[in-house]
């Protein structure tokens, strides 16, 4: 019994040690990548295919994500508000949720799956087939050559994709509220415009920069440290998705706290749109 609990403690200890070690390795990886960005940025020839792969090829899934978020929010919100006699606020409620939380987070999660999964599988395959070693022997630093362009593409494009997701979400909500439930188009736009501020949109978009950075770093790191074989590649893809997802949720929480404090410090915490 005692021995068993000892071995349990030991294994918890080992796990903690592994986690700390991995965190350290990941920080080192990140530091190396930034040093390459500052030294030589990247070349268009390397960046362009990534922009296409990460940006253009994500448009369909982001369209679907945005549309369904907006529509399901409309379905959930409209009748609740109508019962209370506030159906004119449906658009406001839908849009503030989409722009501040659901759009960025769900787009981030979607991209963690699509982009993160494919990045870690691609780099993982390169690792296990020794292509990354081959790059090194050909005097091309793999971090500069592979990671930097992928990181920059994610950093620039994921915010764009988030804005795109937001817009589609707003239109999806509109379609359900106005076309299906026969709500007022004027109310949908009027109350949204009156109470959603630029600050809200920017808060959503600035989170998505961090999401993009985290997705790129986690999936490139996992790909580079892929274990041999098809199983290793599969595991790298799964691990990178799970870790990006969790990081997105954690970052999202802290950003929400930060933005609340920031907003309160500058404009004071009064309910918006209802005042004056």
């Amino acid at each position: 019994m005692r021995q068993r609990s000892m071995s349990m403690i030991a294994s918890v200890g080992a796990m903690t040690e592994d986690t700390v070690a991995e965190f350290g390795a990941m920080s080192l990886f990140t530091a190396r990548m930034f040093s390459w960005i500052f030294r030589s940025f990247t070349r268009w020839r390397l960046l362009a295919p990534q922009l296409y792969e990460i940006g253009v090829r994500s448009l369909p899934v982001i369209f679907a994500t945005g549309a369904f978020i907006g529509m399901v929010m409309a379905v959930q919100v409209y009748f609740q508000l109508a019962d209370l006699g506030y159906k004119q606020f449906a658009g406001l409620l839908i849009n503030i949720s989409v722009v501040k939380e659901l759009g960025p987070v769900l787009a981030g999660v979607m991209l963690a799956g699509r982009v993160g999964g494919s990045l870690s599988a691609e780099l993982g395959t390169m690792k296990v087939t020794e292509q990354i070693d081959a790059l090194t022997t050909l005097a091309a630093n793999p971090i500069r050559y592979l990671v930097v362009p992928r990181f920059l593409a994610c950093l620039f494009l994921i915010p764009f994709l988030t804005v795109y997701c937001d817009c589609i979400g707003v239109l999806g909500g509109y379609a359900v509220v106005v076309w299906i439930y026969g709500g007022s188009a004027h109310d949908y736009w009027f109350y949204s415009q009156r109470s959603i501020e630029t600050f809200d949109v920017l808060a959503g978009v600035s989170k998505s920069f961090l999401f993009g950075a985290v997705i790129a770093l986690v999936s490139c790191y996992k790909g580079f440290n892929c274990k041999p074989g098809a199983e290793g590649v599969g595991r790298a893809a799964t691990e990178s998705f799970v870790l990006s997802f969790i990081s997105i949720l954690i970052i999202n929480f802290f950003m929400a706290v930060f933005f609340k404090a920031f907003y309160g410090a500058i404009w004071g915490l009064v309910p918006r749109g209802m005042g004056s």
């Binding site: 087939t129 020794e130 292509q131 070693d133 081959a134 790059l135 022997t137 005097a139």
Partner: peptide
């Protein structure tokens, strides 16, 4: 490493590039 050439046991060709880009890699890069 510019003074080295290495043939990998597994070939390790870059599968996102055609043969020309693979063989000419060093020349294009350096």
């Amino acid at each position: 490493r510019l003074r080295f050439g290495m043939l990998f046991q597994s070939s390790a060709l870059f599968d996102s590039m055609d043969v020309n880009a693979n063989v000419g890699f060093l020349l294009y890069e350096h």
